[in-house]
Nucleic acid binder design. Structure first.
Lengths: 240, 240
DNA sequence: CGAGGGCTTGATTGATCTCAACTGGGGTGG
DNA sequence: CCACCCCAGTTGAGATCAATCAAGCCCTCG
């Protein structure tokens, strides 16, 4: 591969960065990347780390470079709902003020590339295609949110679990084409988090996972590692 | 009001159109409006009319000028979930292809202003601010979708109903400031539709509405007309 | 007046929640 | 090195909220 042609003048930080390929940075040329990289900070966060409190850090946006970030909303009495999961190379942040509040937390260890709100907004003026990418990303998030609304509102507990596993399979390595029959991966979420994602309790999640396992739809090692031999078979359980 | 200044050269069709004020057309100047208006068609549809099937009419976008449009998703076995409601002057349509399918239907009688996909895309090239408006709108929809995910996943039946009524109050005339105590409006949805929106059954919706009524939180006339004397009191029941 | 659709109400069922006990692995400190 | 603890996960038994099944009511419309 003649990567050198495309990487001429690209900041070292960005050379192998996925956000430059599938993420929003793909809208930028070398010069613009250099400019943006000036105010860019790349860092890692441990699982559990809060990345964006209701108000804190609204002033920075990030690209997710690796790992999984969960977006949650909490009711006053503590009930929680995960309203989104972000995988690399998703864009993390809510441009232009939001009325609704949500917080972001590292679900697994994550790697982020963050930059100040202003830097992004300045860059948008210069390169409108950046805003286009942003729109595409947010449209995808909207599609996903709506798919989950169906699951939350109308699917049974076991359908929810199957849908969830399917969603992880599809995001963990989207590289693999749709023709593959099996997959293996680590769950990015604990049982409690899965429950918060699916609007269930931990116990119900556990029981349904056990059921899928005893029906040989999935195998599990170490509580976190899942092996799916026949994705189609799992898809059957998802309901849609 | 010196509307004449701002309406000079504006197509007749657009003069008093809300989309020009709060909607996406606000991004356009008179000339651009004239250009767009050439391929624009304004029309009314009766409640129940399908506006956008899974594939049909993806080639046109619309502004909702009056009335309410519901966006629904359906599982293979017929279970339905309403995943969004659009009020004037919302933009209706999914630019740039979607993987996820959804259909749009007039919930009440509606008035639409529609234009071909191409016209919009051409106009975006000329006026990037149009894309910005689109992004803002979709971000709002995303915020709303996530609020509903919390309701669907974590709220009780009666909290769901209260949240729903509250949402309608806030959308039906957002003009009225947050200081007003009461409100009266017609429900844009039937009981069955409310059920599809909240992930409940018709019976549960009916019972919970009855309960709110017997507790004097709301009054109801003709099954559709709702009077809320104390919005705060209703908000208390919504859970957040 | 009779029929049908939308809505309500009642009785019962059932999926999921709640509460509680137990298990197993990993880490800690004596 | 081992005993202990702690936490995540599992499993069981019983309670509960909403679904289901079944009438019945109230408009509107023919």
């Amino acid at each position: 591969m003649r990567e050198d042609i495309h990487t001429a003048g690209v900041p070292l930080l960005c050379v192998s960065c996925e956000a430059r390929h599938r993420g929003i940075c793909g809208a930028l040329n070398s010069e613009q990347l250099v400019a943006l990289a000036k105010s860019t900070k790349r860092y890692k966060a441990k699982a559990g780390k809060e990345l964006m409190g209701d108000s804190r850090s609204v002033e920075r946006f990030s690209n997710v470079l690796s790992g999984v970030v969960k977006l949650t909303k909490t009711l006053s009495d503590g009930r929680q709902q995960i309203v989104g999961l972000q995988f690399a190379p998703d864009f993390l942040g809510r441009p232009f003020r939001s009325e609704s509040t949500l917080s972001a937390e590292a679900a697994t260890d994550v790697e982020l590339c963050s930059f100040p709100r202003q830097a992004l907004e300045r860059m948008i003026k210069e390169q409108p295609d950046l805003e286009h990418r942003l729109l595409e990303q947010k449209l995808r998030e909207l599609d996903q949110a709506r798919d989950w609304m169906v699951a939350l509102g109308r699917k049974t507990a076991s359908e929810k679990i199957a849908s969830f596993l399917l969603m992880i399979v599809r995001n963990i390595d989207p590289a693999a084409g749709p023709e593959r029959r099996g997959a293996a991966f680590d769950l990015p979420l604990s049982r409690a988090e899965i429950a918060d994602f699916l609007g269930l309790t931990v116990e119900t999640v556990s029981r349904q996972i056990t059921r899928l396992r005893s029906e040989n739809v999935i195998r599990i090692e170490n509580n976190r590692h899942v092996i799916v031999d026949d994705i189609e078979r799992l898809a059957t359980r998802a309901g849609d």
